[in-house]
Computed example of a mutant assay.
Amino acid sequence: MEPNKVSVVVPIYKVEKYLNRCVDSIINQTYSHLEIILINDGSPDKSGTIAEEYAKLDNRIKVIHKENGGLSDARNFGVQYVTGDFTLFVDSDDWIEVNMITELVHNSLKFKADVVQSAFYYAHQDHLLFDNRFYQKDDPPIILDNEALMAELVMNERVKNFAWGKLYKTEIIRDIPFKKGVLFEDVFWAHLVMKRVKTYLILHQPLCYYFQRGDSIVSDYSPRNLDIIKGLKERQIFIEEFYKNLSNESYKVLLKTIFIHYNLLLVNRKKDPKGTNKKELQIYIKKNYVKFINAAEKDNNLKKQLLLFSIHPYFNILFLFFRKLLRKFKIVPTPLGLEKINL
């Protein structure tokens, strides 16, 4: 008997190549008490037609067509139609294991968890990657209270900011919309949801596949990618107000992200021809230098980067280059990588 309905929300846009794989993985779940909400976000390809064909075959599927408004708008639209006790977000180029929802619901009920997170694979065309730096696949579940959860969310290692890969009690998320018109929308959303969570459960068995498309962030980079920094700045204000003890860790994540995007802007000079975005990042670091240096006090590498960057950003780049060189020749240790599984 499956008394708890699960609503699966799937935003759809230009995914005709991947949509069958995604929807098939949902309709074939061992947990059958599902409501599958497919939101066609004004997709110009055949995605909407494919979705309608599925709806004819499975009465659990609702197809909603709307004008294009982006991923956040599509998710928000879909949540309006949710009637399930639990909600699961699945991106339309990803897919899930046949027993994923059974496992998530079972463990949510067993541990009385507000949110259950599963491990996942980074799925490439010819191989999978699994993050085994912290946990092994057969490790027992981990329970986090609210304080521990927020600490993990800020670090973004064991608990990612991703909305997908997690089963939520619907009552927790229903009135927290995703921010529209931004990239990295999950960064703006996750901390607001997690503040409401009393019990968070981490499962280590990988139950979903996060598809990695061929285009890289370097080749496809644009100033819109800086939205992630806007999201982290918003979160910093939130952390200062509600979780003051996590302020330094939050500033560290923000600083590391700024350095990454400053370097990406350098590589993609044509996308920032007047250097306006780079200057804004420099000004922000200068304005908050004391906070950043305090946050980086126990992180020697980050502290060096900040000191060098404050002299000139190119000094930081030289530091990173030489560190990479030293790692290549095994003079300094290489950070642990991910487990690779060939297909």
Rank of each mutant, 00 (worst) to 15 (best):
Y13G: 01
L19C: 06
L19S: 03
N28T: 12
L34K: 05
E35C: 00
I37G: 03
D41C: 07
G42W: 00
S43P: 09
G48K: 02
Y54M: 02
Y54L: 04
A55L: 07
L57P: 06
N59D: 15
G78P: 02
G84T: 04
S92P: 07
D94Y: 08
D94E: 15
E97V: 04
L109P: 00
Y122C: 02
H127Q: 08
H127R: 10
H127D: 04
L128T: 10
L128F: 06
F130Q: 06
N132P: 07
N132Q: 14
D139A: 09
E152C: 06
V154G: 04
M155L: 13
K160A: 15
R174L: 05
I176S: 01
K179N: 08
K179V: 14
H191N: 12
K195W: 12
R196T: 02
V197L: 06
P206V: 05
Y209A: 01
S216Y: 03
D220A: 14
D227Q: 01
Q236T: 07
F238C: 06
I239D: 00
K256L: 08
I260T: 13
Y262M: 05
L265K: 01
L266W: 09
V267E: 09
R269N: 12
K270F: 15
K271F: 12
D272P: 05
P273D: 05
T276N: 14
K298I: 13
L302V: 00
L306A: 10
L308H: 11
F309S: 00
I311G: 08
I311W: 15
H312T: 15
L320P: 06
L326S: 13
R327M: 14
K328D: 09
I331Y: 07
L338T: 04
K340W: 05
